[in-house]
């Protein structure tokens, strides 16, 4: 996570088109939660993952999707426990493999909105191969990665997004491995919608998740979060509210970032929030599969 403060940048509220009264007041959003599932969630009090769940629910609700047409697929880890609480077709799979399961499901049910929910370790370490190949194919999966830069469920081991020098239980002398930039990896691999925000900037998350679902190819929203229980404790970042304030302080909107001088941009270590990439030129993969079948059946083999 970014450490340096280059200046205060407020949330770009003007960029957000969702009417405010829809965010929290709509009783329809409650219909997206499972009535027969025991709450509370397994997450620690103060965790950011629940905020992402809220954004996802509001995005789905705002798009007017029925519960039946949504499938949530996750892997293993704190974030991957999210689907069980939501009243969709939900699948909690094996560690790192959410996108591979989702690929089969999307091909079988191309008209469903297939959403994969992963943590940083799940998506990028054990699942890194599936991540780049799902993006390469441009299969119509909305992927949401909650990036808290640590393995939370197993107690605070360094992940592929832990910054160099930070403490983790498996990095007692500070992490020595450079982190992956998640969004840049997705863009380079062929994703057709890539956006990043933080759990502090929840209105942005609502908007980006909504746009990502609307995009029919492979889309990614990186939701930068925090783990005060492990990462925060090991690195003396304070409480959950302290870390939440850190996300506000150490992030910058894309529009503000673009106004910086070239030198300031080069030196920027803040989290850049915004829609980082949109590509409308590529065909969605499950549709390509159907087109292939159509072509073969009507006689053309080329």
């Amino acid at each position: 996570m970014a450490e340096h403060i280059l200046g205060a940048h407020d949330l770009d509220v003007d960029e957000i088109q969702i009417p405010r009264e829809d965010w929290f007041e709509s009783s329809d959003t409650l219909q997206k939660l499972r009535k027969n599932k025991k709450f509370p969630t397994i997450w620690c009090a103060g965790c950011g993952i629940g905020i992402v769940m809220g954004s996802l629910i509001r995005a789905i609700d705002h798009l007017g999707l029925s519960n039946d047409e949504v499938a949530l697929v996750s892997g293993i880890g704190c974030t991957s426990r999210m689907p069980v609480y939501m009243d969709f077709n939900t699948m909690h799979t094996t560690h790192g493999r959410a996108l591979a399961f989702a690929t089969g499901l999307k091909i079988a049910r191309p008209h469903m909105q297939v959403i994969a929910i992963m943590g940083d370790g799940d998506a990028l370490a054990i699942g890194g191969n599936h991540f780049i190949h799902a993006a390469r194919r441009n299969i119509g999966i909305t992927s949401i990665i909650v990036n808290n830069a640590i393995y939370g469920m197993t107690g605070g081991q360094y992940s592929p997004t832990t910054p160099v020098g930070k403490q983790a239980t498996t990095a007692p002398y500070g992490n020595i491995e450079p982190p992956f930039p998640i969004c840049e990896l997705a863009i380079a691999s062929g994703a057709t919608y890539v956006a990043r925000s933080t759990v502090y900037h929840v209105l942005e998350l609502d908007k980006y998740i909504q746009e990502a679902i609307q995009k029919d190819g492979f889309s990614l929203v990186e939701a930068v979060s925090y783990c005060h229980t492990t990462y925060g404790r090991l690195n003396k970042f304070g409480t959950a509210p302290d870390m939440m304030r850190g996300l506000k302080k150490d992030s910058i909107s894309k529009s503000a970032f673009e106004k910086l001088s070239p030198r300031e941009r080069a030196e920027n270590s803040k989290i850049v929030r915004g829609v980082l990439h949109v590509d409308d030129s590529r065909e969605e993969f499950s549709r390509v599969c159907r087109q292939l079948s159509e072509r073969v059946r009507t006689g053309g083999s080329q």
Partner: peptide, 19 residues
């Protein structure tokens, strides 16, 4: 698929999708 792990995952995903 990109490997056999993904192949196995994909067939389970497709099967639960009805194929």
């Amino acid at each position: 698929m990109e490997d056999e792990i993904a192949s196995m995952a994909a067939i389970i995903g497709a099967s639960i999708g009805g194929l």
